[in-house]
Design a protein around this nucleic acid. Structure first.
Length: 420
RNA sequence: GCCCCCAUCGACUAGCGGCCUAGGUCACAGCCCUUUCAAGGCUGCAGCGCGGGUUCGAAUCCCGCUGGGGGCACCA
C-alpha cells in the first residue's frame, strides 16, 4: 500500500511555524516511505478565506523545499460530492434533517476509539459525540464532514496533524464509517507552543515563514530545527541534512507532548548552517538576501566582504548592522575615540604601499607601543573610527576593503570629533 | 463545567524495569585562544511535578492528585 499523506491548511492567513512543522512531518513521512505528499486547501468557510493566503502558503512550502505531489486541491471544489454523500447518508437513514441542515447520527453508547500512531490507544465515550451537522442549511459541508470525506476520496493512508485535532478524530471516524470508507492511521503530534507556553496560532505569537526568511534564516536550518521539535533520531544527533532527515524519520519517534519554540537554538543552528556553506554559496545566499531586503547595496562589494563576515553571523539579517559601514557613512561616539591614536594611524596609513591587510597590520602593530597604549585600546579606537562600532569584522581586513581614501577620511573625521 | 491529550535540566530531547552516579544539544557561568565580536577548545551549573502502589529492583508499569495544553459551533 502506497503511503499517502496530506497537509491541509485553511487559507485564513500566512503559514505559521506550527503549521510548517506539521507539514514537515507529513512531508518527511511521505518521502521516507516513498509515498505521496498532497497539499489540500480547506476553504470550506469562504467567509474567512484570505485571497493571498493560498499563494503565500505555496510559496512558503516551496522555499522550505517541501514539494507536494499532484495538483493542489481545494475543499470547495468537492462540495457537490459532499452533498451527494450527505443525501446518500440521508437515504440510508444514517443521517437526518434538522431545520434544513443535515445531521449525522452518532452512536450513543460504547466508545469510539483508534490506535494513534504517536499516542497509542485513545478512546472517547460515544455519548460525548453529538449528532453533528454535516451539511449546513445553505448546502455547504462542514469541516468535520468535508475533511474526512476528502481523505477518503484522496485515498489518504495516514493523517498526521496537530494535537488540537484529537477531539475531532472520533467524529471523523464515525463519518468515515457511515460513508463506508476505510479508516486511515491517525498520528497526533504535540503542538508547538510560544515562549509563554500557549499554542502558536495566527492570532497568537504569530510567526510566519516569510518572517524567518526576511530575518535571514536558511531554509535548511529551519527544517533541521523544526524536525527536532517533537522528533528525535537518537540521543546524540542534532545536525542533519534534509536527506538524512528523510532517511531517518519515523512516526514512532515522534513525541506526543507539546514543545516550546526556542529562537536561540534556531539561531545557533542557523549559524552552523551558515558557517558550513562554502564561500561561493555564502556569497550567493548573502547577495540574494540583500537583494530581497531592497537596500540597493553593491553586490560585488558584499561579495568581497564574505571572507570576513562568513564565520561571524548567526543569521544574514545581522549583516546590515555588522557590515553596513562598507556601504554607508558611520556615526561616531566621541567617547570611544582617542585623537592621538587616530592621527598616528592616519599618518601611517597615508603613505602605506601596498594598501593590503598584511602591510596594514604590520604598520598599525607598531602604534600602541609608541603611544604607550595597550594594543586593545589603540585598535578599539581605530575600529570605532573606521567601522562606527566597537564590534566589527576583523579590523585590518576591513581597512583594506574599505580602501585608503575612505579610511583616511573616517580617521580624520573621527580625530576632529575626538577633541582632546 | 464536561471530554481528551501531555508531564525528564530554563528550552528541545535520549531513556521504552536493572547498562542511570540520568546522556546529548541550545542557553547560562568560568577558563583558554584573541585587535573587537563571533567561532573553536576545555570545565562547570542544572532535571525525572507530588503521593500511593506493583516489583528483589522504577525516570521507566498501575492508580490518584497537581500542573500544562487542546476541544466541546450551521469555524477550520
Amino acid at each position: 500500500m502506497t503511503v499517502k499523506v496530506r497537509f491541509a491548511p485553511s487559507p485564513t492567513g500566512f503559514l505559521h511555524i506550527g503549521g510548517v512543522r506539521t507539514a514537515l512531518f507529513n512531508w518527511l513521512y511521505a518521502r521516507h516511505a516513498g509515498g505521496e505528499f498532497h497539499l489540500r486547501i480547506e476553504n470550506t468557510d469562504t467567509s474567512r478565506e484570505v485571497a493571498e493566503a493560498t499563494e503565500q502558503i505555496k510559496e512558503s512550502l516551496a522555499w522550505l523545499g517541501l514539494d507536494w505531489d499532484g495538483p493542489v486541491t481545494f475543499q470547495l471544489e468537492r462540495s457537490e460530492r459532499c452533498q451527494v454523500e450527505a443525501r446518500r447518508l440521508l437515504a440510508e437513514g444514517k443521517a437526518y434533517e434538522d431545520e434544513g441542515a443535515i445531521r449525522i447520527r452518532m452512536p450513543d453508547e460504547g466508545v469510539t476509539g483508534w490506535d494513534d500512531a504517536v499516542r497509542g490507544p485513545v478512546e472517547v465515550p460515544s455519548e460525548e459525540l453529538e449528532d453533528l451537522i454535516i451539511l449546513r442549511s445553505d448546502g455547504r459541508p462542514t469541516y468535520n464532514f468535508a475533511s474526512p470525506l476528502e481523505d477518503w476520496l484522496d485515498g489518504i493512508t495516514h493523517v498526521i496533524r496537530g494535537d488540537d485535532h484529537v477531539s475531532n478524530t472520533p467524529k471523523q471516524i464515525r463519518v468515515l464509517e457511515a460513508l463506508g470508507a476505510e479508516i486511515p492511521v491517525y498520528a497526533h503530534v504535540g503542538n508547538v507552543l510560544g515562549t509563554d507556553g500557549k499554542k502558536l496560532s495566527k492570532r497568537h505569537g504569530a510567526v510566519g515563514v516569510d518572517e524567518f526568511r526576511r530575518e535571514g534564516y536558511l531554509p535548511e536550518a529551519l527544517v533541521n530545527y523544526l524536525a527536532l521539535l517533537g522528533w528525535s533520531y537518537d540521543d546524540k544527533t542534532t545536525i542533519m541534512s534534509r536527506e538524512e532527515l528523510v532517511e531517518r524519520f519515523t512516526i514512532e519517534r515522534v513525541a506526543g507532548s507539546s514543545a516550546t519554540f526556542d529562537y536561540e537554538k534556531l539561531e545557533w543552528m542557523n549559524g552552523v548552517y551558515l558557517r558550513a556553506l562554502g564561500e561561493d554559496a555564502y556569497a550567493a545566499a548573502l547577495t540574494t538576501f540583500l537583494g530581497e531586503q531592497g537596500l540597493g547595496w553593491d553586490a560585488e562589494l558584499a561579495r568581497r566582504t564574505v571572507p570576513i563576515v562568513h564565520e561571524k553571523l548567526v543569521k544574514l539579517g545581522r549583516y546590515p548592522e555588522y557590515a553596513g559601514f562598507f556601504f554607508h557613512d558611520v556615526t561616531l561616539d566621541a567617547k570611544l575615540l582617542d585623537r592621538k591614536t587616530l592621527e598616528a594611524a592616519g599618518g601611517v596609513l597615508a603613505e602605506l604601499d601596498p594598501f593590503e591587510t598584511e602591510a596594514i597590520e604590520q604598520a598599525l602593530r607598531l602604534l600602541p607601543e609608541s603611544l604607550g597604549l595597550k594594543p586593545r585600546q589603540a585598535f578599539q579606537s581605530i575600529r570605532v573610527a573606521v567601522t562606527g562600532s566597537n564590534v566589527s569584522p576583523a579590523l585590518f581586513e576591513s581597512i583594506e576593503l574599505l580602501g585608503r581614501e575612505k579610511t583616511l577620511e573616517r580617521l580624520r573625521t573621527a580625530a576632529a570629533l575626538a577633541g582632546d
